[in-house]
Amino acid sequence: MQSIQTNPTFTRRTLLLGMIGSVAHLTGCGGGGSDVAGLSSGGTGSFTSGTISGLGSIIVNGIRYNDDNATVISRDDGTSFGQSLKVGMVVSIQGSAVTAATTSNGTATATATKISCGSEWQGPVSSVSASSFNMLGLTVDVLTSTVFEGVATQLAGLSTSHFVEVHGYVDQTTGHLQATHVEVSNTQPTQYKLSGVVNNFSAVNRTFKLGTTAQPSSQISWDSNTSVPSSWSDGVFVRVTMTPGLLATHIRLLTSPLALLDADNEQDVEIHGFISAYQSNANFTVNGIQVDASNARIAGGSLALGVRVEIKGSLNNSILVATKVETPSNSEEASRTFEFHGTLSALDATAQTFVLHGLTFQYNNSTSMQGITLANGVSIEVKATRSSGAWVATEISSDA
C-alpha cells in the first residue's frame, strides 16, 4: 500500500461530518493507571498511535496488541517495514476491538491487523550535550525513558563517531525531535533521513532547510530525479530521505496514518503525539491526524502548536472525534514504566540479571517479587524502568 501524498485540509464540511452521531464515553481499563488504554467502549475495532512501551506481543498506549499475524509496513511508503518492532519505536496500529483487563493492574488486549512504523531522523552525530545531541544541524532531546540500542546504550556513550536512527516526535515550535528510541551504529547508513518544517526554500536553486529559522538544518538539495510533492514551500512539514551528500531522493508531505492503514469509521481511537497544526482547542491536528475536540474534556495545560497530547475518542469520516485530551509533561514521560511478557532465560543469581526478549534486566532487593521464584524457562511479566542505559525490573510476577 502506498501512502497518499496529500496535505489534509480541515474543512467546515468534514468537521460537520465528523461531528455527526453519538460519541461513546471511554473508560479506563488497566495497563498503567486510570484513563490509560480507554479503548474498550464497544466500537467495531481500534486504532492507536504512540510509542511501544512493552513487548510480548507489543504494548502501545496501555494495550497489549497480539501482532503475530499483523502486516507491518513502513510509514514512509507503505512497503514492508523489514525490521523487528522494538521498545521505544513509534507505531500506528489498526486492530480489533479492545478487551478490558480482568484485574485492576492487568493490561487490556487486542489483536493488531496492520501496523505502520518508521523513524524520523537518521544520520551522523555532530555533537553531544548533557540531555541532547545534534545531527545535521538539528537537536534531538533525550529523556531518561529514551531507549538506546546498539553500540551505545545511553546518551553518555554517544560520540561524534556514531551514526543514529531516531524514533520520536518532532516539536514544530522548536524543530527539536523528542527521542523515544535511538539505534546507534559505527557504520554510515546508505541513506539519511530528516523531517520538519521547510524553510529557506529556493525553487530556483533547488535547495531548502528544515527546522526553524533560529535553528535550521544543514542545507538539502534536490534534482530532477527527486520524488517531490506537487506543491510545497516554506512552512510545510515534510519527511525527507536523502543521500549522505544531502541530495534528497524522496520528499513527502506529512499524511495521516489513518489513510495508510485504512482505518474504519466507528472505531475507538487513542493517539499520543504533538500538535502539528493548531486552529483552536476544538480544531487541531496531531501528527497528521485531524482532531475535533469541540466536545472533549481537556485536562492539563493549554493546547497550542507543539504541545504534547494524549487523546481518546472515536473515528468518524477520518476525523478523531475526541472525548478527552490530556497534556502530559516531559517529567511524566521520563518516569515511564515499561512492561514485558515472556520466558525468562540466562538467569544469573549472583549478578542479579536475566534476559527477556533479548534484553538484559537487572533486579535487586527493591524489586517487588509477586509470589514468584525466578528460574530459566519460567513465564514472567516484568515492569521495568530505564536507569543509566540499563533495564531495571521494579516488579516481577507470573505470566502463566
Rank of each mutant, 00 (worst) to 15 (best):
R13C: 15
T360H: 14
G42I: 10
G82P: 10
I275A: 08
L158M: 09
T180V: 05
E395N: 06
T173R: 15
F237Q: 06
V204C: 03
L258M: 07
H250S: 14
H357R: 10
E310Q: 12
P216W: 04
D264C: 11
Q94A: 04
H272A: 09
V286C: 03
S302Q: 11
A393Q: 08
Q2K: 06
M19F: 15
L177W: 01
N295H: 14
A293E: 08
S74T: 04
V198F: 02
D35R: 12
G31Y: 11
Q5V: 03
S345Q: 13
A248R: 00
E326H: 08
T139M: 04
V184G: 02
Y169C: 02
S218G: 15
G371E: 04
Q2L: 06
V166Q: 07
S131V: 10
V98Q: 00
F340E: 05
T367Q: 11
G137I: 07
V321Y: 01
G342M: 07
T103L: 09
F354T: 02
I20C: 05
S74D: 08
A304S: 10
S132K: 15
T353S: 06
Q178G: 10
A203N: 09
V166H: 01
D141V: 14
H162E: 13
I380A: 02
P257S: 09
S227Y: 06
L26S: 07
N330C: 13
Q279T: 14
A214C: 13
H357E: 15
E266V: 13
T109R: 04
F284S: 00
D77M: 07
G106D: 05
G150H: 04
T213C: 14
C117Q: 10
Y65P: 00
E332Q: 06
G211Q: 14
S233T: 12
I251Q: 03
V325N: 00
T109K: 02
L303T: 02
Q2H: 00
N61S: 09
N295M: 02
V355Y: 12
M89V: 07
E120L: 05
T241F: 03
T146F: 11
T243G: 01
Q352E: 03
V286W: 05
E270G: 06
M19A: 11
T109D: 07
L254G: 00
F148P: 05
A70F: 03
N225M: 15
G123W: 01
I251Y: 00
V204A: 15
A37K: 00
S84T: 05
E332N: 03
T180D: 12
D234M: 09
G118P: 04
V125Y: 02
E165Y: 10
D292I: 00
V228I: 14
H341W: 12
V236N: 01
L258F: 06
S127T: 10
V286S: 04
Q154R: 15
S227V: 11
V321N: 04
T180L: 02
D141N: 14
G28S: 12
S53A: 14
Q267Y: 09
S227G: 10
G389T: 09
M1L: 09
N295K: 12
V60C: 05
L344C: 07
V128W: 07
V184A: 11
L210S: 12
G235E: 11
L16G: 11
T9E: 09
E395S: 13
T11Y: 07
S145L: 10
G313W: 00
L305S: 13
I289F: 00
T6S: 08
A248K: 07
